[in-house]
Amino acid sequence: MRICAYRGYATRRQALVSGRVLSNNSPGELRGSESLWHNLLNSYRQFETDEVPHASVALRFESQEHTVQTDAEGYYHAELPRIEQSDETWLTAEARCMVRGEELSATDEIVAPTSDAEFGVISDLDDTVIETNITSFLTAAKLTFIGNAKTRKPLEGVAALYASLQSGSAGRPVNPIFYASSSPWNLYDLLCEFMALNEIPHGPIFLRDWGIDRTKFIKARGHRDKLDRALKIIGDFPELPFVLVGDSGQQDAGLYAEAATLYPGRIKAIYIRDVDPATATHRDDQVREHIKTAAQHGVPMLLAPDSWAMARHAAELGLIPARKEAEVQVEVAKDQERPNPGAAAVAEALGIESLRAP
């Protein structure tokens, strides 16, 4: 049994924390050398969660204690008032719960932007930070249900790009990064491990509820949840402008263009990573239409082939120092030399001879 505490964030008035109480243990450390069966078993454990509904969770934050109840699927959510103002960019809340005579505890990490923050970043994950190749169903299936944090690959230059955005012109990590994805909450631990392994700046990760039974699988609203989450974050930090980052494989450009129409003076830039930059597709045409929409509201949107193009544009806008562009360029080149878990990996994992390279 365990409490899976999710990273939250704090405004000047309150801290938003959440987590889930589960009766099954964490899948444990994942190793890239594990067998297909071991990875399949761990993937099943991630999706087949045994939640603890209607449990009392005590949350201690800034010398105050609050009690909340988990919902029918074991989630807890709380908005905790802030009574102290700190210069720390990360705060913590302690979560405790008694389940079947066993006391569980966990720490909720909370990002708390200070007055030094120049802007915030809201980013997608799938095919924006982590390579899932969502436009190829089999590759996406392999990476979601079979792969683990050590067999997945970040998009080239992501770590350097996001570190540059996080530091801005301050030279230290003062700008908060929020990640919003259509991936299920069951992958939270894996995504945290992946980002730590690849030195990608950590921040709150907002996912959605999936499962392997019918009711959970159809519950989520899809990509619209990402926009709702982005709009809430933007609304919770009225003093901060934002940079939005997504990809062309899903609906990010349209969602972010809508955000630009709602908050035209609050969005500094929108970056859309082209999931297949070597090929002109209908998706590219759709993104270009959304670029026009954003431009009408004074918001620049870029369809970018890689992290270097984003860094170059960000440097031109003054979001990052010019020297950081060169650092991102170097990392892009390094990452391009890393093994790519593409169709061949899918074929090997699933035993599909026809997809294997000749």
Rank of each mutant, 00 (worst) to 15 (best):
V17T: 03
L22F: 00
G318Y: 15
V129Q: 00
F206I: 15
E258V: 12
L317S: 09
R266W: 03
T107N: 07
E199P: 10
G101F: 01
A253P: 07
A58H: 14
D284W: 00
T128V: 11
F137W: 14
F237Q: 00
V275S: 07
S123A: 10
S248W: 01
L41V: 02
S18R: 10
H297F: 10
Y188F: 01
D124T: 06
A311W: 01
S23I: 01
V330M: 04
V158L: 02
G28V: 07
P358W: 05
E353Y: 09
H66W: 13
G157F: 12
P300Q: 14
A117Y: 00
M98W: 07
G157I: 03
P241T: 10
I352R: 01
S354D: 04
A314K: 12
A220D: 11
V52K: 07
S183K: 00
L317Y: 14
E353D: 09
G168K: 09
F194Q: 09
A78H: 07
T70S: 10
M195K: 00
A260N: 06
R214N: 10
Y162K: 04
Q46E: 03
T144L: 09
W308P: 05
R12L: 08
L59C: 03
E62K: 01
I200G: 02
D127A: 03
W90C: 12
A141G: 12
R224A: 12
L303K: 06
Q250I: 11
G203H: 02
M195R: 07
L255C: 04
A295L: 15
G101I: 04
Q69C: 13
T107R: 15
V17I: 11
F217Q: 13
T281S: 06
T132D: 10
P305N: 06
R208I: 11
H54E: 04
V275K: 02
Q250R: 07
I267C: 06
K232W: 03
L262R: 15
I110V: 12
V330T: 13
A294C: 11
T151M: 13
M1C: 06
L303M: 03
V111P: 13
G203Y: 00
V111E: 02
L41S: 09
V57Q: 04
D228P: 00
D127Y: 05
L355V: 06
Y162F: 09
S23N: 07
L155F: 14
V332F: 08
D335W: 01
I134L: 04
A72D: 14
I110S: 04
A170P: 07
G342C: 05
R229H: 05
L143A: 14
R7I: 12
G19A: 10
H38A: 14
V57R: 11
A112N: 08
H202M: 07
A333T: 09
V129K: 01
L317D: 02
G265C: 03
E65L: 01
R356C: 06
A78R: 12
K150S: 09
Y6H: 12
L317W: 06
E62L: 05
E48R: 10
E103M: 14
L350W: 06
W210Q: 00
V275H: 05
Y75K: 10
S35R: 04
A196V: 11
G120Y: 12
L227V: 02
E84R: 08
F178D: 03
G249V: 04
P176C: 05
D236H: 08
